[in-house]
């Protein structure tokens, strides 16, 4: 999933843009397009707000386990993975064990990135675990993307 830009920053942009259109002197083709994509974004943000926190928490645990597994196998950039795991755990400790929030998710995603580099060309359980982690991320992101379609031109 993409936890950035933050929900509040996107809503601020959409709020300002909607107000701009409400105050516009004339309604143009670009006005119609802007309102169309604003409506799409509001639906997208609603899904993010509802699903993201719990999905991110579940993913973080999976990525942490994967990082440990890659380390045990001694694959890839082990120093980098050790540091990334330490950063994640330090952050979670400082947050009282919390697995929510964009920062924890970003730190866990970095663990997954390093695990992908390490395990992509490997075989066996580590490769399978990496593929499974990607599959979970894909399924969760599909839930967020929902019926969003590129359009408005």
């Amino acid at each position: 999933m993409l936890s950035r830009p933050s929900l509040s920053s996107v809503l601020n942009v959409l709020s300002r843009a909607t107000m701009d259109q409400a105050q516009a002197q004339e309604f143009s083709a670009s006005s119609a397009r802007e309102l169309f994509i604003t409506s799409q974004m509001l639906a997208y943000l609603a899904r993010r707000a509802e699903y993201e926190p719990s999905l991110m928490a579940a993913e973080i645990d999976i990525y942490e386990d994967l990082g440990d597994q890659v380390l045990r196998e001694g694959l890839g950039d082990t120093d980098g993975i050790s540091r990334a795991l330490a950063d994640l755990r330090t952050h979670r400790a400082n947050e009282g064990g919390s697995s929510s929030g964009a920062t924890a998710y970003a730190l866990a995603s970095e663990v997954l990135c390093l695990a992908i580099d390490a395990a992509f060309s490997a075989t066996g359980s580590v490769h399978d675990a990496m593929v499974n982690a990607m599959r979970v991320r894909e399924i969760n992101q599909a839930a967020i993307v929902g019926d969003f379609v590129i359009g408005g031109r």
Binding site: M1, P5, V10, V13, L14, A17, I37, V145, I150, G152
Partner: peptide, 24 residues
């Protein structure tokens, strides 16, 4: 796009939209 949106509430709506396009 995400950085553009987070930097300013004057960012174009298209920048916000691009974050959803990227996810898709």
């Amino acid at each position: 796009a995400p950085a553009t949106v987070e930097l300013s509430d004057q960012a174009p709506v298209l920048a916000a939209y691009m974050s959803a396009v990227l996810a898709s």
